[in-house]
């Protein structure tokens, strides 16, 4: 039996007004695979990620998660979104709730867990990201790195089939980036399926199974990190890598 892909995206298009930001993107992600999306800002990476759980409504194309259509008009979005964890550049923690309650909210409302079960699960998740002692802290009392780890715990608590990371370290001070990447490495060891948009090239090279290079709403090149970093074929990839490693 061949393993079915977790995510299958074909000919995904998205326009904002007359501007087409995704021009027919195809991507298949296997179970346990870590895919990193690279590209300069405005290349459509974030929009692509946000279309996967339909925070942005795709203009056309199809997306399936474990064979279930996400893009069908009768798709049960709530059920599907619980299976797609998402981590945002700006964390988007709920500032009026403690770290614990940030996690239990969806457990209670989306999964219908009891308060006790949700709190147990949330504490377990916080311990996994190394923040067990911060359960009762509000986001404003946490560093950026800690906030992002709580946000990751919040997404993981729903036990998703795939995790989407939208520039998870871009809003962090350099010294805090490591703690967040460490958590993502841990998830990789546990064979979590992940799609990551990042500008951390060193991390991409080390953690990705496959790198996708996007430019102007299209995939221009893809392949294993070694191949892409040492022998990039597309001129845009070369230019991008030169620009970033030259910093």
């Amino acid at each position: 039996m061949t393993s079915a892909p977790v995510l299958q995206i074909s000919d995904l298009r998205k326009s904002f007004g007359s501007e087409e930001v995704l021009k027919g993107v195809n991507l298949t992600v296997q179970r346990g695979e870590v895919v990193v999306l690279l590209g300069s800002s405005g290349s459509g990476k974030s929009t692509f990620l946000r279309c996967i759980n339909r925070l942005e409504e795709p203009t056309s194309g199809s997306i399936t998660l474990n064979g279930n259509s996400v893009t069908a008009s009768n798709a049960n979005l709530r059920t599907l979104r619980k299976q797609i964890g998402m981590v945002f550049q700006s964390f988007n923690l709920y500032p009026h709730l403690t770290a614990l309650k940030n996690i239990t909210l969806a457990l209670r409302l989306s999964l219908g867990q009891t308060r006790q079960a949700a709190e147990e699960q949330a504490k377990h998740m916080l311990a996994q990201v190394g923040l067990a002692e911060k359960a009762h802290a509000h986001p404003s009392e946490l560093s950026g790195g800690q906030q992002q780890r709580v946000a990751i715990a919040r997404a993981l608590a729903l036990e998703p089939q795939v995790m989407l990371f939208d520039e998870p370290t871009s809003a962090l001070d350099p010294e805090l980036v490591g703690s967040v990447l460490e958590v993502i490495r841990l998830l990789r060891q546990r064979h979590m399926t992940m799609v990551i948009v990042t500008h951390e090239l060193g991390f991409a090279r080390e953690a990705a199974d496959r790198i996708i290079m996007m430019d102007k709403g299209e995939i221009v090149e893809e392949g294993p990190p070694e191949q892409l970093f040492t022998a990039p074929k597309h001129p845009r990839t070369r230019e991008f890598l030169k620009h970033f490693t030259g910093r």
Binding site: Y94, A151, R154
Partner: peptide, 27 residues
């Protein structure tokens, strides 16, 4: 209230109504 708060609620499977009542309105 920043749009990201809606994104976070809806990405975790909350309905729009749950998102506004539990996340947006209190803030």
């Amino acid at each position: 209230i920043p749009k990201g708060q809606w994104d976070a609620g809806r990405a975790t499977g909350l309905t729009r109504f749950q998102t506004i009542v539990y996340i947006v309105l209190p803030q």
